[in-house]
Nucleic acid binder design. Structure first.
Lengths: 234, 234
DNA sequence: AGCGAAATCGTACAGCGTATGGATGATTGG
DNA sequence: CCAATCATCCATACGCTGTACGATTTCGCT
């Protein structure tokens, strides 16, 4: 089998200089596109290779296995975080902490199909993540908290953000009607089973049953910020 | 091929009365055992069938597909929650809320290999989960919070527990040495990249770098409770 | 006795991740 | 300038997965 020399065509062997079709970066970008457009399950090595016009096995020269692809995507997600806001010594720590929390959440939301995977991997992920928490540390340091308490407070806040994002990602909408979901389930219970819940949900039914994730995040965030202030005497 | 009539043997066709080897319940219990003993990835339909001494396809008469198996397992996890503590009108809301939070966390921790899967599914899960949150509602109702705020507070707390459990489950240990993990990563950064973080982690290094998940949970929970109290004037 | 439904099994298919090895051009050392 | 090595890509193939389809056996009912 010899040369059929269309310049970029599917020839075997090492490509000519300047014709490389693959690179870690290019692969990860294609993978991200697939995940965003078609979901996590669509991201197979074969599908990814096809998107790049390449044989599946070629991918393994740039990434050791599929898990590494997802790890790379997790990095992309955190790298896409908006840390552009110049550290500003004039704003108070609450504002700064709130801003950091929003930036973190937004990074995770930018690729909803990926959020779950990223969260599952987070503990195992690279240096990018570490940099990511700097603003949280900065805000609480400027508030005057001692190191150990900063550490604990940041962990707590980030755990909340993770959990919130998890719920948000598995519902997949900005908004969420409680009526069909929660209310219907509650009404299916035997009467004595969850009386408080039933009563509270009933009372909620009187107002709106509408739930907005943005509002929920704001509320949760405020609770934790207030908690940090109270508990650590700020 | 005709009868080789060992009573429970691998004969084809419908089993004789009282010889049924399968049931939704039995399948789920076997699946849970596999997940606990060998991990999530080991739980394949073939492996599950083998554990029950049955042909893989037989499972599909009791459960529509593999996802349904995991959904069933999620129910088992929540059903295993310790709600035995009789509602006690004498303890204050903080105590009751704390107890509920621990019970919830413990249910998730009882099957660590499953935690991640359960968290991912939570939104889609059945009535069992709804009952599960009753103690949270009860505690905050007794604290005198209005419905809407109870709703938001419970969501926030549960999000925190989910996020915390997620981190805990992906580390897989009661304890967690920050030195090799966090410290090493921080030390790999370019000097200017995360100065506060570097300084705080350095200061932490002076004391112990030990992190205990139980303590972390306690702290986070306290922060939340203080936040509720402050924010809603309890 | 006969019949439909229920429970099980056997076979088979498409798709997955990836191990292995071969082709080809780039790069480098003599 | 040539030989050797290396980087990059491709073809084939293996063992595994979830599950569709259809046959087989027995139950429960009429």
């Amino acid at each position: 089998m010899v040369n059929a020399d269309k310049p970029g065509a599917g020839r075997s062997g090492r490509p000519r200089a300047g014709e490389e079709r693959l690179s870690r970066q290019a692969i990860l970008e294609a993978a991200l596109r697939i995940v965003d457009d078609e979901g996590l399950e669509a991201m197979t090595m074969r599908r990814l290779a096809a998107a790049l016009g390449v044989n599946p096995m070629s991918l393994y020269h740039h990434l050791p296995n599929k898990a590494a692809v997802f790890a790379g995507l997790a990095e992309l997600v955190f790298a896409g975080m908006d840390n552009a806001t110049a550290p500003d010594d004039d704003v108070d720590w609450r504002t700064e902490l709130t801003r950091a929390a929003h930036a973190y959440r937004n990074a995770l939301r930018a690729h909803p199909n990926l959020a779950l995977q990223v969260l599952a991997d987070t503990a195992a992920v690279s240096e990018v993540v570490v940099v990511t928490v700097e603003p949280f540390y900065r805000a609480l340091d400027r508030a005057g908290l001692p190191p150990r308490q900063i550490f604990e407070a940041v962990n707590t806040l980030i755990d909340f953000i993770h959990g919130f994002t998890l719920g948000e990602a598995s519902v997949r909408a900005d908004t969420f009607e409680l009526a069909p979901d929660l209310l219907e389930r509650v009404s299916k219970l035997q009467p004595g089973q969850a009386p408080t819940l039933a009563r509270i949900v009933g009372a909620l039914g009187a107002d709106g049953l509408h739930y907005e994730f943005d509002d929920g995040f704001e509320t949760g965030l405020s609770v934790f910020v207030d908690g940090i202030a109270t508990r650590f005497g700020l």
